[in-house]
Nucleic acid binder design. Structure first.
Lengths: 187, 187
DNA sequence: CATCGTATAGAACGATCGTTCTCGGTGCAA
DNA sequence: TTGCACCGAGAACGATCGTTCTATACGATG
């Protein structure tokens, strides 16, 4: 087993467990067992639980960004690229492991007591907003459209998570269509 | 001191502390000290921390519902009543104690390990959606408008919380205006 | 084979959690 | 004054947390 192989497995396992049960509900021993590494190796790879949490957030950010971009890139027109954001959300919501946005959740759980976590969540959302803004700019939309679509996407995530149904994705997508067309026509 | 007076102070203090630091980060001893009651009285009023959490959620639900309705009722027309939702959010976001929706936060923190909390958060969001639906119906809007506005409201809450700015309220309000007018015109 | 460095499983540690118990004081009734 | 029922402060308890330490097994090297 490679050394970074163990590292990856630890982070991947932590990601799953933290998502399924919440960060604070998963102890190091449970993570150790699930990842199949010794406690010593765990602390050899990471100095503390907090650093594992940050590594999980980085992993989530990368996974989310790549997955979103892959879906968006399949859309033929700038307008459909903006709508593809909500298709990506729809796929995500349908996964059985979906339990809400990991950044919203970690912010809610640890944001008040961990400046690192709060800051990383802020950065992640900021990067999403910039991504939406770049797509909106590509569609020739006015600047106010992107924040509106980002808010729709955020709302769809929490609504889907708490309601337990993926309906919010299509509802948000239809709303996005109205907002996009209105923004493009009044331009 | 009345017996229910102590109860109210416990719940009010727990509400503040849980909101400020997160539920799991506030121990019974800290709550006891802040509320100024003995540990014995605390457990005399509530059988467990979980029951305090549920009492806090009930308090939040009542406070939110009443505050929202008071703002909405001041609006003269059905259309402006729908928009008043976002004015209410704007006021809320500007409070220094604002740290996101307490139900989203409690769901993120405890939803996976406490069916009670998850269920109550679901019920709260459901009641909000029904409230929006009743306002939308009063404005003569088609049925699909209310979920769209509710998603906007949810998104504004998480965006404002994580970004740390109240901007999302006005952005969501402007988006709501577009959606409302589009829905009313195509009817 | 003997030896040594390393990795492992799991015990142990201090801290903190939610919860309960004990002790000492206080007000009231007789 | 004496007895008694309550009350608050905080010690105590068992569990669990994150983290570290120890004892044991193993594998490579001479």
């Amino acid at each position: 087993m490679d050394i970074s192989d163990a590292r990856n497995r630890i982070v991947a396992t932590a990601d799953e467990l933290y998502n399924a049960k919440g960060i604070q509900a998963v102890g190091m021993d449970e993570l150790r067992t699930a990842a199949g590494v010794s406690l010593k190796k765990l602390y050899q790879e990471f100095p503390s639980k907090g650093s594992i949490v940050m590594a999980v957030l980085e992993r989530r950010h990368q996974s989310w960004t790549e997955g979103l971009d892959a879906t968006v890139r399949r859309a033929p027109t700038p307008r459909e690229q903006l709508l593809a954001i909500f298709d990506y959300l729809g796929q995500w919501f349908c996964q059985s492991t979906f339990r809400g946005c990991g950044f919203i959740n970690s912010f809610a759980e640890l944001g008040a007591i961990s400046p690192e976590v709060a800051e990383y969540a802020r950065k992640h959302k900021e990067s999403f907003q910039e991504y939406v803004a770049s797509l909106a700019a590509g569609a020739g939309a006015p600047g106010y459209l992107a924040p509106q679509l980002a808010i729709l996407a955020e709302g769809a995530q929490t609504t889907a998570a708490i309601a337990g149904t993926p309906n919010a994705a299509t509802q948000a997508r239809q709303a996005a269509e109205v907002l996009i067309d209105a923004a493009l026509n009044t331009k």
